[in-house]
């Protein structure tokens, strides 16, 4: 495990995870594949800007790599 990964929050930080997951899925219901992908990309950019911290963003990119 790389040292920067430790900066990411490893614990659940969202109240009502099931509710959030449903909201996310519902928001894309009825969108075609292309629009879903675009929406996901917008979400990543919005959330990344909200986080701001470059080390955390780097750690998140690393963590997100497919297995």
């Amino acid at each position: 495990m790389s040292p920067i990964k430790a900066e990411l929050n490893d614990q659940l930080n969202i109240a009502d995870p099931d509710g959030f997951y449903q909201e996310l899925i519902d928001a894309q219901r009825g969108l075609d594949d292309d629009k879903q992908q675009l929406m996901n990309a917008k979400l990543i950019i919005i959330l990344a800007n909200q986080i701001g911290d470059r080390d955390i963003l780097s750690a998140a990119i690393q963590l997100a790599e497919p297995k």
Partner: peptide
């Protein structure tokens, strides 16, 4: 394809938000 979505995401966001413009 993925980088095209990010590019278009930034262009759409730039119309509505300040933070996306510098991207």
């Amino acid at each position: 394809k993925g980088s095209r979505y990010f590019r278009d995401a930034i262009l759409e966001l730039a119309e509505d938000t300040q933070f996306a413009k510098p991207f």
